[in-house]
């Protein structure tokens, strides 16, 4: 079965991905409960929330790991090309819709070289160019060109993340921070329009974390929207243009980093209080602020 894009664009031009009423149930557990938000082009959107808030579940729905129980995920790749992500098979999410992701625990192909890792990500176009291997085996020139272009792109990315010297080493031999960067480069080699990163800064030292911020900003400036899950608030506040906060599977706040930071519901969620106590906590925070100010 081949999938076709939707006929009419249904999203405003600045919106890349619209998540509507996303709900994911596992038996009796509601991991994500009626969450809606937009990911806009040219923005870094951060998905934050306490542990168990459902952030990774939202990611898994967007990238085809789970089929959502309820909800619609519309991605407008180009002006006249929109996709419903929940209807795509896992490899089509990358190939047709242009969504790439990384994982919290690194999932590189450890036994393959850095270069090969980046080439696997370009398998779709290469497979087409190679006439499904047959022409490639027979040595057709078009395949040679496609393969060279793929290698050039991989090389450019290796240079960009500073790992060109290790192109032929096994990916598993890299130190942790380098593996994280390689995973992002690999995701970018699929030519995505949306890059989903699950805690990219986890386990990085401050210098690596700063490098990561620079890399993510440059990716955004090249027109690829970034959606990231992050625990490190300094990273979130520094680089994101738009923050969505989840708690117990529900969206509790959505807006600019500055607005979200001030949102009492967010503060309460992070401090771990019940909804009824939010007002009380707010007062307390104000009192503390006044006292420290005075």
């Amino acid at each position: 079965m081949t999938v076709r894009p939707l006929d009419a664009p249904e999203l405003p031009p600045e919106v890349l991905l619209r998540v509507e009423h996303l709900t994911m149930r596992f038996g009796g557990l509601v991991a994500v409960d009626d969450v809606s938000f937009d990911v806009r082009r040219d923005e870094i959107t951060a998905l934050i929330g306490p542990n168990g808030a459902g952030k990774t579940t939202v990611f898994n729905c967007i990238t085809g790991f789970y089929k959502p129980t309820v909800g619609r995920l519309t991605l407008r790749r180009a002006e006249d090309e929109s996709w419903l992500l929940e209807r795509l098979r896992d490899h089509e999410i990358s190939r047709a819709a242009g969504v790439a992701r990384t994982f919290q625990n690194i999932r590189l192909f450890g036994g393959m070289t850095l270069l090969e890792n980046l080439l696997v990500a370009q398998h779709g176009p290469l497979m087409r160019a190679s006439g499904f291997t047959l022409l490639g085996v027979l040595g057709f020139a078009s395949y040679g060109r496609a393969e060279r272009a793929a290698i050039d792109k991989a090389t450019a990315w290796l240079e960009r993340i500073g790992l060109i010297d290790r192109a032929d080493d096994a990916a598993a031999d890299l130190p942790y921070g380098d593996q994280r960067r390689l995973e992002i480069a690999r995701a970018m080699c699929t030519d995505p329009v949306l890059l989903c990163l699950d805690e990219p800064a986890a386990g990085l030292n401050p210098r690596e974390s700063a490098e990561l911020n620079t890399l993510l900003r440059s990716i955004r400036n090249e027109g690829v929207a970034v959606l990231l899950i992050e625990h490190d608030m300094s990273v979130v506040m520094e680089i994101s243009d738009h923050v969505v906060v989840l708690d117990y599977g529900k969206k509790i706040s959505d807006g600019s980093p500055a607005a979200v930071r001030e949102d009492p519901k967010v503060i309460a969620a992070y401090l771990g209080v019940e909804d009824e106590e939010v007002a009380k906590v707010e007062q307390e925070i104000e009192r503390i602020a006044e006292e420290s100010g005075a």
């Binding site: 896992d90 490899h91 393959m112 090969e116 990500a121 398998h123 190679s130 499904f132 490639g136």
Partner: peptide, 30 residues
Amino acid sequence: WLIVTRTSFGRAQRACEQDSKMAALLGVDV
């Protein structure tokens, strides 16, 4: 051997061997 080590199909095959779900997310039709 040339198919497995030199072609895009061979690479995809080795990638599926190591982590087929990840390969699928990179656009490989597993």
